[in-house]
Design a protein around this nucleic acid. Structure first.
Lengths: 202, 202
DNA sequence: GCCTGTGAAGGCATTCACAGCA
DNA sequence: TGCTGTGAATGCCTTCACAGGC
C-alpha cells in the first residue's frame, strides 16, 4: 500500500513535541479523507485509541514494520551522472533500513571517483558486488540506451526489485519487480490536468 | 489517465519501421492486459482497425492530443543541485510540448552559472520570470528545508501545477496540483514487495 | 463527549466474453 | 479469420454512518 509510505512521511514531519494525532489531522496532512486513513491503518491492527487518536511514535513504528523498514536492505545504484550522484548522496533512506553498498558506471573517467564513502566501480564488478552484499534492490540512473542491458545484469545477478529512473520501459523476468520514475511522464500527467482544467475554465 | 503516458512511451520505443501494432502486443510492452488497453484507448475514440490493430503514428498523435502535449507548456525548475541539473539537461520533454524557460537557485555561488542555454537566476526573479513566460508548471528540486517556501512562491506567482522532487509533503492552495516524486517512498514500496515476497516464499 | 474501528452501501476500475467489422 | 470495441459481470476501493471503547 503506497499510502502507508505517505503517512509515514507525514508523521516524520510533525514537530518533535507531538505525541498524539487524530485521524482527521493526519489525513489532512496527507491529503486524504479521515475515513480512508482509518481504514488503511486498521489493516495494521488496532493501534489507535478511541476518543484520543494515534500515538505518533508507536504508529510510525508499526508502519515501518509493515513496510519492512525495520530490516536491512542493501542496494546498488548504476549510473553516476548528475542523477546518480543526487540519489547516492540523498541521506533520506538511511535509518529506514536502506544501505547503499555500491555505485557503478561504465565510463572509465568516472570509475574510481569517490561518491560519499564509496568508490565508483565498473560494470564488470556489478554482479559480484550484488552477490557479495546480498543486494536485492537495484537503482538504474543511466541514460536510456544503457538501461535495458543494466536491468538484465541486475536481474541475472539476483536483484529482485529495480527502481528505474531512465525514460525507458524495461523488459525483465517475471519475478523481478520494476518501478518507473519518469520525469517526462510526470510532466505529462500535470499537463493533462492543466489541459482539462483550462478546457473547463475557459 | 496516467497509463496513456505509458502507452505513449511504449509507442515511441518501437523500431522505426513499425506502422501497426495489435492491442495484445502493445499491452505486453506496457505490462497490462489487452482488454484494459483497449478500454483505455476506446475513451479516445475509435482509432483502431478491427482485424488489423492500431496505426502507431496516428495513435501516438491522438494520445498526445488527449494529454495536451500538442500545446506549449513553459516550465521552471527551482534548485540547481545535482538533481536540478539532471532534470534541466534531460532532453526527453522537448518535442512533447514542454519548454524549460528558467532555472533558479538561492545559492549565490550557483547564480549566474550556465545550464544548457539558460543562466541560473536568483529566487528574487522567480515570480517575474514565471509571469513573463506564462509558466504554469514548476519543478522543485531543492533540499527539503527550502521546498515549502519555494512552493508558496510558485503558487503566488501563478503556477498551477508543481512537481515536487524534494522529500516533503507540501501545503499549497487547493487550486494548485502537486505531484510528489520521492526516492525514499519508491524504495519503501519496493522493500514492501520484497518483505512480503520473502515472507511467503520463506 | 470524543474519536477510532468497521460493517454496509455505493462507485469505480478491471476482466470477461462476444458482437461487429475489415 | 483476426482483432477491435463494448455491454455485462466481477471485484476492489472508497465513502458513509454509527457502534464501541476511552
Amino acid at each position: 500500500m503506497p499510502r502507508l509510505s505517505l503517512y509515514l512521511r507525514c508523521l516524520e514531519e510533525l514537530p518533535p513535541g507531538v505525541e498524539r494525532i487524530s485521524s482527521e489531522a493526519l489525513a489532512e496532512l496527507a491529503g486524504v479523507t479521515s475515513a480512508k486513513l482509518r481504514k488503511d491503518l486498521s489493516y495494521l491492527g488496532s493501534y489507535g485509541v478511541r476518543g484520543v487518536g494515534y500515538h505518533t511514535e508507536h504508529l510510525g513504528y508499526q508502519i515501518r514494520r509493515e513496510l519492512g523498514l525495520t530490516g536491512d536492505w542493501p542496494l546498488v545504484i548504476v549510473g553516476m551522472g548528475n542523477l546518480g550522484h543526487a540519489l547516492a548522496r540523498y541521506e533520506g533512506f538511511r535509518g529506514q533500513g536502506f544501505r547503499l553498498v555500491g555505485v557503478f558506471d561504465d565510463d572509465p573517467a568516472k570509475v574510481g571517483g569517490r561518491v560519499g564513502h564509496l568508490v565508483v566501480e565498473p560494470l564488470e564488478t556489478l554482479a559480484a558486488a550484488v552477490q557479495e552484499h546480498g543486494a536485492r534492490i537495484g537503482v538504474i540512473a543511466t541514460p536510456p540506451q544503457a538501461a535495458q542491458a543494466v536491468a538484465e545484469m541486475l536481474a541475472a545477478a539476483g536483484v529482485a526489485s529495480i527502481l528505474n529512473f531512465s525514460p525507458t520501459v524495461l523488459r525483465v523476468p517475471a519475478h523481478v519487480h520494476v518501478r518507473r520514475v519518469d520525469f517526462s511522464s510526470e510532466l505529462q500527467v500535470l499537463a493533462c490536468y492543466l489541459h482539462r482544467g483550462a478546457a473547463s475554465a475557459g
